[in-house]
């Protein structure tokens, strides 16, 4: 009786010891708390940056309308930009930005798609050895260098060709075309590579030529991807500041043609923001331009998501 009691107690004590041992915090649990803390903090910093960026630019950007009581419609449709005199029609810059963006995308897309087809379908080997580095180098060139070349080569060239100052939408388009080309090409290559091999093989087996296969099968099934690529390129063009500002001439007037000085949202911002005083109408008006840039960037983002979702639905079915 005594004996068993003693044994039971001993057993109890042992299992109690294990109970404690398996429940207490150890170095590993503390490490995990620490790690969790650090990584949550870091992601928190990023979220805070994004949130405050959206908040500050929005609140600054709407001051034109809430404090200076400029009508939103006048801002968007007015063509007279002279903030010193209280005229803040932003249409010239809006038109300028959209014009260079669309023009650059329209010129760059055939080049990008052609290059991507070459890299994936015609000569993957040369594609990897020659074009891949070429594209990477083009991405690597800083935008001020593009701006400088635009200023030193494209602008004089346009001046010789059509007269005038040489500054204007055409020159900006030219510079942006080279800048967005690598973006669109890289992403198009990815989407062409993602087309299942058997699509291509089936088409070739039916006796289609390479071009028929490419145009009817590969490009068609890669269309959402190519569209996404073009939108990314457009987003880059829309937001590019210095290279455009250096070659477009920076005249805040409605562009009448493609070869006279014009301006974009970004170019107006870079030239203007340093010369205005915080809190005044001219300053607030510039922040409103920045807000348009921000909203457009969100719009491009949403568009890409929308296309991706559509693509998933289609593939799912």
């Amino acid at each position: 009786m005594e004996q068993t009691n003693f044994q039971l107690k001993k057993q109890d004590a042992q299992s109690h010891e294990w109970d404690v041992r398996l429940h207490r915090a150890t170095r590993a649990t503390r490490e995990d708390w620490l790690g969790r803390g650090i990584s949550y903090l870091c992601i928190g910093v990023i979220i805070l940056v994004v949130a405050s960026m959206l908040w500050f630019i929005t609140s600054k950007g709407i001051a034109t309308f809430t404090q200076n009581h400029v009508s939103l419609w006048k801002f968007l449709s007015g063509t007279n930009w002279a903030p010193d005199q209280g005229n803040i029609g932003a249409l010239p810059m809006i038109v300028g930005s959209f014009a260079v963006t669309f023009a650059a995308a329209i010129v760059a897309t055939p080049f990008a798609v052609g290059t991507a087809i070459f890299m994936t379908e015609i000569s993957p080997n040369k594609g990897r050895k020659v074009l891949q580095p070429v594209i990477e180098l083009l991405v690597g060139i800083p935008s001020v260098v593009y701006g400088f070349i635009g200023l030193a080569v494209v602008v004089p060239f346009m001046r010789h060709l059509v007269g005038g100052s040489g500054f204007g939408i055409i020159s900006a388009t030219f510079v942006l075309f080279v800048m967005v080309l690598p973006t669109i090409t890289t992403m198009t290559v990815d989407s062409l590579r993602a087309v299942p091999r058997h699509y291509k093989e089936a088409s070739l087996a039916l006796g289609a030529t390479r071009w028929q296969t490419v145009s009817r099968v590969i490009l068609r099934s890669a269309t959402p991807g190519i569209l996404t690529a073009v939108i990314f390129g457009m987003a880059r063009a829309f937001g590019e500041a210095l290279a455009v500002q250096m070659v477009i001439g920076n005249a805040a007037i409605m562009p009448k043609n493609l070869i006279s000085p014009a301006s974009t949202l970004t170019s107006q911002l870079t030239t203007g923001i340093g010369d205005t005083i915080d809190g005044t109408l001219p300053n607030n008006a510039l922040w409103s331009l920045a807000l348009i840039l921000l909203l457009m960037s969100l719009f491009f983002n949403a568009l890409v998501r929308f296309i991706a979702k559509r693509g998933q639905l289609k593939n799912g079915r």
Partner: peptide, 17 residues
């Protein structure tokens, strides 16, 4: 059950286990 402890409980120290 491991040493009379239910180690499938949420509050056990999984690293120790």
């Amino acid at each position: 059950w491991y040493h009379d402890v239910d180690i499938n409980e949420p509050n056990v120290n999984i690293y120790e286990i």
